[in-house]
Amino acid sequence: MAFAIPKENYAGKVREIVIGKGDKAVKIGGYDSMPLCTFEGTWPNKPVVAMEVYDVAPELNAQGWPPATFEAFKDVINDPGAWAKKCLEYGADLICVQLAGTDPNAQNKSAEEAIEVVKKVKEAVGDIPLIIWGSNNLEKDQEVLPAIMEAFPNENWLFGPAEEGNYKKITASAIGYGHLVAGKSSIDVNLAKQLNILIENLGLSLDKVVMDPTTASLGYGIEYTYSVMERISLAALAQNDDKMQNPFINDLAKEAWKTREAMLTVEEEPTYGEQNTRGILMESITAIDLIAAGSSILIMRNPTAVKVIKELINELYS
């Protein structure tokens, strides 16, 4: 008798989500098997890479960016539009505008300044869909993100993170101005479900919602992120829990590039080896782990890491 691979039958399916509009719109989700288990079901949409463009120029130093990434963008670092174009050359599927500069504890940039940045990026990349990511400051994000939604109505872009403390304003604006929301919960399967329910109760269809389970880097708790993504996926697919059937986004570059392993120079830590390779590996392997955990959108930074991951995705999901 021929060997037959034992297969799991899943009862549920994750929603297909469309970001952007027209020919350049990006589709994610729509899968009905666990990640990489394409012998048990289908993943009609491959995971995608969103490359970061920052609203304030990073610096080349121990608090900012190490050379591996800085060098790749140094010509465009003060021009969000040119930066975004460069990302497309490097293979980005979407652009993620990181509004770290709006954080009151950083440069405290205003909503108007953020709108200017988004405008430059939009003018540069045309119809490529955008992800607009706040500074993780609950108060400021619920002011800045809705202002951008209002300035660019009905673009069907993805805005996040919306958390339990600020999802109301962000979600209400997304409904009013025709955008999507990424709901962020802190590594907890029950809280993730609760946030989806709350967002839906406000009136946003779950067809417009992506889940951010909170992302940790390799070596700094990625196993917790992996585990909660696995549990959410099992609830969605095996238990057919319709409040959990939403694809994931992972804001990983920030996490991977603030690790000791990425930041320390060879002089500071000779045993770690060459710094550039190290940082790129930290970002790449974090991303690989998140693909294995079921990520649909990877927010990434370094072009070499992006190249590695795009090739890998094409091989895994061809």
Binding site: N190, Q194, I197, Q239, M244
Partner: peptide, 12 residues
């Protein structure tokens, strides 16, 4: 464990 717990479980 038939349905995943959330604080809104009674509203489902």
């Amino acid at each position: 464990g038939k349905v995943l717990y959330s604080h809104s479980w009674l509203e489902m």
